[in-house]
Design a protein around this nucleic acid. Structure first.
Ligand code: MN
Ligand code: MN
Ligand code: ZN
Ligand code: ZN
Lengths: 144, 144
DNA sequence: AACTATATAGGAATAATTCCTATTTGTCAA
DNA sequence: TTGACAAATAGGAATTATTCCTATATAGTT
């Protein structure tokens, strides 16, 4: 099952790259793999440190440029933080986030009611909606 | 009415400062006034540029330190962005945000249904909730 | 008015991100 | 297969955002 999920997501990666005429490089491949493995919404620097274990002289700029490119083509999302480094999320399905203001952890949660909340028409009319998400801010169990 | 609102909010500012033993300095006063006037969720730098017109040699560090202090005592909120400089909001009442991914504008909207959405107990149990907000991400009318 | 703990200005240091460019490489067509 | 070449990378510089440092000034108290 894990293997199948990986195959599915690596196919998604390859398809999206081809769709946007992006070359499938070893760097992009390892960066996407690390993003897909991470459940903790890593920063570019966190991905850089992991990618480095595979390619010791990959540059930070390559990692940063690549995750931003992935975000641009919709392969990953940049998720809401409060300042600080950008955080990336390879899960593009509808879900929601808890954010701990002490340790900056971003924790996923799923909620059908939240998913199905309608966006008012007056917003849809004047704003092209790409995503809707509930952000709950507070202090996580580890931090109190 | 605007005058009254200003008085109310300046009293809130003074009370909160006294409550936390923060001195009421001219710098803090002008910073809070600018925050309260701004409806666009300014960054520390945006507030700095405005405060400078009143006190030409106020330092950026003072502005930054002060808005972070205000956030700490709950006088303002740091609002969700996606990387980039922190953005501040003097409106601490429940409301929600549209965020334009092109121009980084953060636009307020109010919605009773969103306000009244319950937070599941399993979240409340393991997480100290301070705030809940719906973030809608997309492209604003000016940007398309 | 004097005292003193707190706050500020200004500059330095650090962290996060983006830019620059010589070199390398993935892809495609021969 | 092999070469051609547009695209991507590494490495470092530059830029932007934030935090730290410290001598001086001042708000609030006595
Ligand atoms: Mn997530
Ligand atoms: Mn707001
Ligand atoms: Zn935490
Ligand atoms: Zn816009």
């Amino acid at each position: 099952m894990a293997i199948k999920d990986n195959n599915v997501s690596m196919n998604l990666f390859r398809d999206k790259c081809k769709e946007h005429n992006l070359r499938i490089t070893p760097q992009r491949t390892v960066i996407y793999k690390e993003l897909h493995k991470s459940k903790d919404h890593p920063s570019a620097d966190a991905i850089f440190r992991k990618a480095r274990k595979v390619f010791p002289n990959i540059s930070f700029d390559t990692v940063n440029r690549t995750v931003l490119t992935f975000a641009k083509i919709g392969l990953v999302n940049v998720v809401e933080g409060c300042g600080g480094p950008k955080r990336f999320d390879s899960d593009t399905e509808s879900h929601h986030h808890l954010r701990c203001i002490k340790c900056n952890r971003i924790i996923d949660f799923h909620n059908k009611d939240y998913d199905s909340m309608e966006i008012p028409d007056e917003i849809k009319n004047k704003f092209t909606v790409l995503r809707k998400r509930v952000c709950i801010e507070g202090v996580c169990s580890k931090c109190r």
